[in-house]
Amino acid sequence: MTTSDLRLHVSDLACIRGGRVVFEGISFEAGAGEALVLTGPNGAGKSSLLRQIAGLLDIEQGTIALTGGDPERGIAEQAHYAGHLDGLKPPMTVLETLRFWAAFLGGAAGGVETALEAMALAPLADLPAAYLSAGQKRRLSLARLAVSPRPLWLLDEPSVALDAASVARLRAFMAGHLAGGGIIVAATHLDLGLPVARELRLGREVAA
């Protein structure tokens, strides 16, 4: 993440699901080292917005662009998405899971160790995911973000099921990413305690 002129541009974005307009006219920008927190009532479209940026949901109107990154790769390939589902396979151990994602996403050397460290998963490394508690599963699914460096993090309620100690770790993890020049867009009720966090409120009135 050496590119400091990295910038995420979203302009005039709309989301229509099942014939209902979830949101429209959303515009914002976020630069390297910035975090954007999405807030708003249930159904305001926080998850949909994140999925649209990740390329998992079609865009009806508007544009999303990431400039200053790797021109060879699309936004989806430069982004990590952590949604409500953990994406874990019960029989695979913590270590196997991280190794698989490192191989699949093209992780850097030592990425797996960094990931184990970041979410304090080292003591659980040889346990199958089936044995983990909800919070531990969440930590494993978040640790995946560290196995392969990608500049844009899209987090959907990342602190769900986490205890206080794990939330502190998550905060440090996210702060480290921002310090390295990354961008975070997160839907969360958690006070991130990050220096450069702006808020984007979805819902009745839209403000950037």
């Binding site: 390939e77 953990d86 994406g87 874990l88 699949f104």
Partner: peptide
């Protein structure tokens, strides 16, 4: 169902 497909579709493949 378990969400891995989202992640698979964001990979290099």
């Amino acid at each position: 169902e378990d969400g891995s497909f989202d992640l698979l579709s964001m990979g290099p493949l």
